[in-house]
Design a protein around this nucleic acid. Structure first.
Length: 578
RNA sequence: GGUUCCAUAGCUCAGCUGGAUAGAGCAACGCCCUUCUAAGGCGUGGGUCGAAGGUUCGAAUCCUUCUGGGACCA
């Protein structure tokens, strides 16, 4: 049940009934202030000119025309013509019961779309570093949200598994193996391996030439080079999988569709662009000139799909990927999570792909950019010595820091239990700190604030969940099968109830805009409202009659389920005790 | 040079399809534990929404210009 959608439909009908034109704007939103009801309709003012009536008169007519006798307790006209909608607690209670009895929390599936989500995409030549964190966890949260809403989601991990650097890497690997090395051992630290290969490439006689030869051989399908490359890639993927596992991210090996997967399509892609005249030869290269993105003098932007030497570029691979995703996979939407610096590239890519008919008018191509992770000094996040921070090491540090904090607390948990809690709290903290910020801008990474149990953090939310579980343990009842009508008497109960019903509004926005921070805000507000409710409305204390107690337990149960569901969509684990 | 993004409380951030007195958290300062996990709650103070114009009944939100910062393309 989406209350906002329901109210909007009712108001649209009322607009027609009072003679407003079809498709009049119908701004209906959650109220901005407690005194303004739960929802407000603000369309009366704008209609004033169209209908040539006073806004308050229009509001009055709308209030009389709108059919909300079950849903609303009160409609009031305020200020210049705002209509404040106060929901009926009895109706709200019924909706909560429906949600509580449903294993999807009353969330209806959306009309199913096929959505391709391209995220994470590490470069296999090196280890994953902090730069991959945002794409990986934001993409995963959006992916899970889309799946929860009933969409067919196809994950595409567009790994960087191709390019000239692999010539250098497989040459170095070849020599290691020839010297009786074991591939797994040689590649136990990709960073070291890369550095060693680079040193040889730069300074060892003949190495660079061999590396270049091997690139050519690899590209022409030489079996020995291919075998070395496969070994390298496979071990590198295993490194990534360890990080995914630690991060609690849903990507699997079968989701990998690396750059190399499109090799065989590149020539055909360029040929098609040439034959349709979108791409022309210029100084030996194959170029699309984009008049749509011309500068002030009218010079079109140049978008190169094949270099003068015949080499291909990211652009070519991305276009081939579009052909595959939109043609073969049948994507209605494609979401691509990369950093904001690639915005221009994707804008141009979409333009070319649409001209070429690789994307049709019913298909969307959505670049979902994100900003950089910065240190406390506002500069790009680096190690003390200025190097890139390995993602695996960052996550280990998070767990260590969480463990330290947990060990400082009084607790009846065993040492092993505390380790498990530290793992979930540490990883959750890092993910939540990132997910809770607006995707598109840079954000400042800070250990202390993300690991705090106060404020809008993962630990606070995990604690809120654990606290509710503690109530259930103490209640010692079969909570899941408790049969009790919910009654919403106290103001805190009503506020919590309305918030619980708005879960769907939050996740629908996450799905449509690819912005998980909306869900974070929602969960935090929900947890805060629960805490207020819990302070004001005793559950298990003496003197609470059974009906009230059970009703409040039901509210707590739906809160716990909603918290868990929301955190699960964000890829953050909950625990019964902490 | 061209394009584009950003600027909101001391700090970190929401809010931006135009709506009522711009919201949270942290930090500061109070208050609440013999009472369901105080890892909590309640409250106080804190703002020329970078600047100036414009559109509008109404602008943090839309438009223009400017200032400062970042990024991308050349």
């Amino acid at each position: 049940m989406n209350i906002q959608t329901l109210l909007l439909a009712k108001f649209k009908a009322a607009l027609i009934a009072i003679g407003a034109p079809e498709n009049s704007p119908a701004p209906l939103s959650r109220s901005t202030r407690a005194g303004f009801g739960h929802y407000q309709f603000n369309g009366a003012m704008a209609l004033s000119k169209v209908l040539n009536q006073k806004p308050r008169d229009i509001a009055q007519k709308l209030v009389e025309a709108v059919d909300l006798k079950d849903e609303a307790e009160k409609l009031e006209i305020a200020g210049p013509g705002f209509i404040n909608i106060y929901l009926n607690p009895l109706w709200l209670a019924q909706q909560l019961q429906v949600a509580n009895a449903d294993n999807r929390l009353g969330i209806e599936a959306e009309k199913q779309q096929t959505v391709v989500v391209d995220y994470s995409a590490p470069n296999l030549a090196k280890e994953m570093h902090v730069g991959h964190l945002r794409s990986t966890i934001i993409g995963d949260a959006v992916t899970k949200t889309l799946e929860f809403l009933g969409h067919k989601v196809i994950r595409q991990n567009h790994m960087g598994d191709w390019g000239t650097q692999f010539g250098m890497l497989i040459t170095h690997l070849n020599d290691k193996l020839a010297a009786d090395g074991v591939a797994e051992t040689a590649l136990s630290d990709l960073e070291d391996f890369y550095r060693a290969a680079k040193v040889r490439f730069d300074s060892e006689d003949g190495f660079a030439d061999r590396a270049r030869e091997n690139v050519v051989k690899l590209q022409s399908g030489d079996s020995e080079c291919l075998s070395l490359w496969k070994t390298f890639v496979s071990i590198s993927i295993a490194h990534s999988e360890q990080v995914y596992d630690k991060l609690n991210v849903s990507l699997k090996r079968s989701d990998i569709m690396g750059e190399s997967a499109y090799n065989k399509d590149l020539a055909a892609t360029v040929a098609e662009l040439k034959s349709s005249g979108i791409v022309v030869e210029s100084q030996g290269a194959q170029v699309a000139f984009l008049q749509e993105m011309a500068d002030k003098e009218g010079n079109p932007a140049a978008y190169i799909v094949q270099k003068s030497g015949g080499g291909y570029l990211y652009a070519t691979t991305d276009l081939a990927a579009i052909r595959y995703r939109n043609g073969v996979l049948g994507a209605d939407r494609t979401l691509i999570f990369t950093d904001v610096r690639q915005s221009l590239h994707f804008k141009q890519t979409e333009l070319v792909a649409r001209k070429a008919g690789f994307i049709n008018d019913n298909q969307s191509y959505e670049h979902c950019p994100f900003g950089m992770m910065l240190g406390s000094d506002g500069k790009p996040f680096k190690t003390r010595t200025g190097g890139t921070v390995k993602l695996a090491e960052l996550l280990d540090e998070a767990i260590e820091r969480a463990e330290e904090l947990i060990n400082k607390r009084e607790s009846d948990l065993t040492a092993e239990e505390r380790k498990v809690v530290a793992d979930k709290v540490g990883i959750g903290a890092v993910k939540y700190a990132d997910l809770s910020k607006n995707r598109t801008t840079d954000y400042i990474f800070n250990w202390d604030s993300m690991l705090s149990f106060e404020g809008n953090t993962a630990p606070y939310l995990q604690y809120a969940y654990a606290r509710i579980q503690s109530i259930f343990r103490k209640a010692d009842l079969d909570i899941e099968n408790l049969q009790q009508d919910i009654q919403l008497d106290a103001a805190q109960e009503q506020l919590l109830a309305v918030k619980l019903m708005q879960y769907i509004e939050a996740i629908e926005q996450v799905a449509s805009e690819a912005t998980p921070h909306v869900l974070c805000s929602y969960i935090y507000e929900l947890a805060s409202l629960f805490m207020s409710f819990y302070e004001a409305c005793p559950i298990l204390k003496e003197g609470i009659d059974e009906k009230t107690r059970n009703s409040r337990l039901m509210l707590a149960l739906l809160t716990a389920k909603t918290l868990q569901s929301g955190l699960d969509l964000l890829g953050i684990e909950t625990m019964k005790k902490m």
